[in-house]
């Protein structure tokens, strides 16, 4: 489904500040996989998602989605295959547009835009159904501007928008990190449900090690631009956060140090 072949990404290449962010990364994700990605700050998790989504282009290597080489395609040209939700709750929606206008953008994804009315009653009915399924009462607020919503509501809407056009791959970039624990839990449940219902291949970056192990079927741990640990199946099911951290120390001869991880796992 998704294949990265010997991908390299440098920042500030050929300057004193050069940083080798993604190092010879090769990764294969099967259709229907729900992969969680953990790693300390600067490990390259977000860069990885940015490379897949087309926000950055790799310096070397190939990125293939469903046998289609997308390495050189700009974001909007590969968007049809991808859905993405960001950490920043204001990034996944357009704040000064209404809920229904936001959903219309997502609904029209991949369709040529013309001089037709963007919204109609049939679409509104679909949106109301979809919003009712989320259970946050947003179906009664179609004409409210998204800027008025709370972070959690915006993130739920962003999730719905990312999955509405049934992408091949869903990219989640710490999409619960800016929410309070209770809301984060609701959003994670919603995520699991939408992924399950739409059979989406998913890549989720998270700082919450518990989430990393309890959601999905495969976990990657990244450090300094490489995947250092890749667990799935029985081994993963039995794994605890403690074991995960120990494995990391064993492999990299250093502690998995990261404030947010320590706080969220304590």
């Amino acid at each position: 489904m998704l294949r990265l072949e010997r991908v390299n990404k440098y920042f500030f290449r050929n300057s004193l500040d050069e940083r080798w962010t993604i190092r010879n990364l090769t990764l294969q994700v099967q259709e229907g996989d729900f992969v969680t990605v953990v790693g300390s700050n600067g490990a390259g998790k977000t860069t990885l998602l940015n490379l897949i989504s087309g926000a950055y282009f790799p310096d070397e290597g190939r990125i293939v989605i469903d046998e289609l080489d997308v390495t050189e395609l700009p974001t909007h040209r590969r968007a049809l295959y991808l859905g993405r939700v960001f950490q920043n709750t204001s990034q996944g929606t357009a704040p000064s547009l209404t809920i229904e206008e936001n959903l219309a953008i997502a609904y029209l994804k991949g369709k040529p835009k013309g001089i037709r009315m963007a919204l109609n009653e049939r679409m509104r009915a679909i949106f109301r159904d979809k919003l009712a399924e989320i259970g946050l009462g947003l179906e009664k607020r179609l004409k409210d501007r998204v800027g008025l919503l709370s972070g959690g509501q915006r993130q739920a809407l962003a999730l719905l928008m990312a999955t509405l056009a049934k992408p091949k791959i869903l990219l989640l970039d710490e999409h619960t990190a800016n929410l309070d624990p209770k809301t984060a839990e609701i959003i994670m449940e919603l995520t699991a449900r939408l992924v399950g219902e739409n059979h989406l291949t998913t890549l989720m970056v998270t700082h919450n090690l518990q989430d990393a192990l309890s959601f999905g079927n495969r976990t990657l741990m990244m450090d300094e631009g490489e995947v250092v640990l890749d667990v799935a199946g029985e081994e993963r099911k039995k794994m605890t956060i403690q074991e995960l951290l120990e494995r990391f120390t064993l492999l990299r001869h250093k502690k998995f140090a990261e404030d947010r991880v320590l706080l969220s796992s304590s």
Binding site: H76, S90, A106, K113, A118, M161
Partner: peptide, 22 residues
């Protein structure tokens, strides 16, 4: 219209618009 809505969304959130294929 579809184009008009896309234009407004672009002014609002360019990143989103690109990830939505516009």
């Amino acid at each position: 219209t579809e184009v008009g809505l896309s234009i407004r969304a672009t002014g609002d959130n360019e990143t989103l618009v690109a990830t939505q294929g516009i």
